[in-house]
């Protein structure tokens, strides 16, 4: 093969992948995701929730007396917001974790592979060649970064709103003891990390759904639909035996971090369950995606 060989000798053939260069795709994926209008809109919605809750509490309580009438997602916290703005962070998590946060994750995770497939860009990434396992890992890593970013956006927005509308200071734990503000901030950060980790399971589920279809919209809708279904089933007493296996069952256990001493049982059960979901649906996504015919 005379001509091709001469050409190969000039440098077209002698290229090998480098470990560090392989990370270029992750960097590009993160940049692409976080510059996307849709991602920013989701984060904006999440940032708006604590602001709305804060303003509502402020208006309802008018002057300063702690009226405990709220009764939203986290009634344990909402009555304390007027005493301490830091409680708005916990209230915001209690309000967004059941639906807003996982819905945002479901959109991003569901779109991860299916969105590329429906745009046709998947085939070009694969012939680049991105490698199927590498692409899947890159997508999952990006979704996890988005989980963390979304959680932090809620936390920061809540903290800023709380500081603006209410006094800050020492706080009373659920157990009744008092801890300093710095300690309280630390607990808030810890809670944010636990909330982000609580979303790992939905992220894996969404990614798996994303490998099943060639339509980004269908994958997003299915993931969000599954989320709602599980949340409803978790409320039905007859399904008591199954409920500990629902990914959302231990979500609100993050409040246990506000006990003195911290009550770890449900927290650890939650993290274990999330790891199990990540392992099961991550493997399923890998098995499906690496064997799939790409016809889109």
């Amino acid at each position: 093969m005379s001509r091709a060989e001469t050409y190969a000798a000039t440098g077209a053939a002698a290229r090998a992948p480098r470990a560090l260069w392989s990370l270029g795709l992750l960097r590009n994926e993160l940049l692409t995701t976080f510059r996307r209008w849709r991602t920013l809109a989701l984060l904006a919605v999440l940032a708006a929730v604590p602001v709305l809750v804060g303003v509502a509490v402020r208006i309802e309580t008018g002057g300063g007396d702690p009226a405990g009438g709220g009764g939203g997602g986290g009634p344990a916290f909402i009555s304390q917001i007027t005493d301490n703005g830091l409680f708005l962070v916990f209230t915001a998590f209690a309000a967004t974790l059941p639906f807003f946060l996982p819905m945002a994750i479901g959109v991003v995770a569901g779109d991860a592979i299916a969105g590329e497939a429906s745009a046709g860009t998947l085939r070009y990434l694969l012939v680049a060649p991105a490698g199927r396992t590498r692409l899947l890992l890159t997508k999952y890593a990006t979704v996890l970064v988005f989980c963390l970013a979304a959680t932090l956006v809620v936390a920061v927005s809540a903290l800023a709103t709380g500081a603006l509308l209410f006094p800050l200071g020492d706080l009373t734990t659920i157990s009744g003891t008092r801890i300093g503000f710095a300690e309280g901030l630390l607990r808030a950060l810890l809670i944010a990390l636990v909330v982000a980790a609580s979303l790992v399971g939905v992220a894996a589920l969404g990614l798996f759904v994303s490998t099943l279809t060639g339509s980004g919209i269908a994958a997003m809708a299915t993931t969000v639909g599954l989320l709602i279904t599980v949340q409803i089933l978790d409320q039905i007493p007859q399904l008591h035996a199954l409920q500990p296996y629902f990914f959302s069952h231990y979500w609100l256990s993050f409040a246990d971090l506000l006990r003195e001493p911290v009550y770890w049982d449900d927290l650890l059960r939650n993290l274990g369950l999330q790891a199990l979901y990540a392992a099961v649906f991550g493997s399923a996504a890998w098995a499906r995606f690496t064997a799939k015919d790409i016809t889109a």
Partner: peptide, 26 residues
Amino acid sequence: IEGPALYGFLSGRDNLLRYDAADPTA
């Protein structure tokens, strides 16, 4: 293959940067 497929929300240059980043030998 079967016509081009592009990220509409990215510029032409950013599309190429992305496809190039997908190649671990680049």
